[in-house]
Design a binder for these strands. Structure first.
Lengths: 208, 208
DNA sequence: ACTATTTTGTGCGATATGTCACATCTTTCT
DNA sequence: AGAAAGATGTGACATATCGCACAAAATAGT
């Protein structure tokens, strides 16, 4: 389902490569494209009242930029590659045509949006109610369970990025990570993270 | 566009009335209905890690419960009427059929979901980054500009509800409201709120 | 290889908010 | 009307986190 849909587009899309740190979508810029992230991983972020807010980390394959393109045409958020990535830009008109012609595809997109909304709700509740350790645990579990599907992974974000994701200062993240290491919950060698006590991490993620 | 769509449903829907405080959708319960809020206003909320979290206030006319119904079939959140309301329950199969048969309707729903996602993003950034006064200002402006479209309105939420919305304790909300009154930004007689200095309120909403 | 920039590690004081503890005041229900 | 439940005011105190300051380490750029 995911990328086979692309075949329907025929030649009307070009594959573009992005390096770590490259901007794929820039907030505030006019756009008429939907982005299909073929390979890699990207952070979705927007400039909040005081700092940059990371909203989510998206893993290929997935579509990005729908809300923007359907709404204002002005990008409401930025998307930045956090690892080497491959992207197709799809013209909104082509995309819309696809939606109309293909009810399955339309249903798939609808479903994705719904999931996304639910996630947003839960994340919102979690972030604001839990405190730092709980949120950090969430993020680590997100990496391990959804993004990399392994207990061992290379952190693709800096500590200050993580801070911008879980709404904490960089320093606090640093201290909390140290605590996790001291408590034997994780191990870190540079950016290499290994989760050594997943049960405990889940517990922390649940109760604050 | 909004409720004329309902005509397409023919007789397959029943109108139900809800009083203030009545539960329209209950989190955790199996459901195969989409809800169309015909008249009134309802809060969308879910039980977070420590307290109840209000995610948004929905004003008629609007659809509710889509993410749930498309996804798990188990309601991921509750919806509660905050004023006298009228609701139609639409069977998900009927709704899906409508989507397939009517591309315009489908596009409309898609658009709604996109908007909703964007809102969630912005709200998420705002809530966590601003402090109490800023968030409270947001809520008051939301009431005045989107929900009631007037500078004078009856607060449909208790202070502890507002707390659950902006992630603050009931006591803090109370104190902040008193400050706003003392500063001449709003007036309150019981639940009657009058915004007397909207400019200042907007300023507070922006910078934290 | 050498410099500039970004990341990471750590201490410390300021502070916004949470939380407990009461006292009112309203609304709801019988 | 009277009682029970809920909503609102307000004080005092604890504390998690912010934000500054500065040093060391790692990464990127020329």
């Amino acid at each position: 389902m995911k990328d086979c849909q692309l075949e329907l587009l025929g030649g009307s899309h070009a594959v573009v490569r992005f390096k770590k740190g490259d901007t794929i979508i820039r907030q505030g810029v006019f756009s008429t494209n939907v982005v299909f992230l073929r390979k890699g991983m990207a952070k979705v972020h927007l400039s909040g009242p005081s700092r940059e807010q990371i909203v989510k980390l998206a893993k290929a394959p997935t579509y990005l930029g729908l809300p923007t393109t359907f709404g204002d045409k002005i990008n409401q958020y930025s998307v930045t590659a956090v690892v080497e990535s491959e992207v197709c830009f799809i013209d909104i008109e082509v995309f819309k045509k696809l939606l109309v012609e293909n009810p399955d595809f339309s249903a798939y997109i609808l479903m994705e949006l719904c999931k996304s909304e639910l996630e947003a709700y839960h994340r919102c509740a979690g972030r604001t109610q839990k405190q730092l350790r709980g949120n950090l645990a969430d993020v680590l579990l997100e990496f391990s369970e959804h993004l990399f599907e392994s207990d061992r992974f290379l952190l693709p974000l800096s500590q200050s990025d993580i801070g911008n994701w879980v709404d904490a200062g960089r320093e606090s993240i640093n201290r909390a990570l140290s605590e996790f290491i001291a408590d034997g919950i994780i191990q870190m060698e540079g950016k290499q993270v290994t989760i050594t006590d997943k049960k405990l991490l889940q517990l922390i993620s649940q109760n604050g």
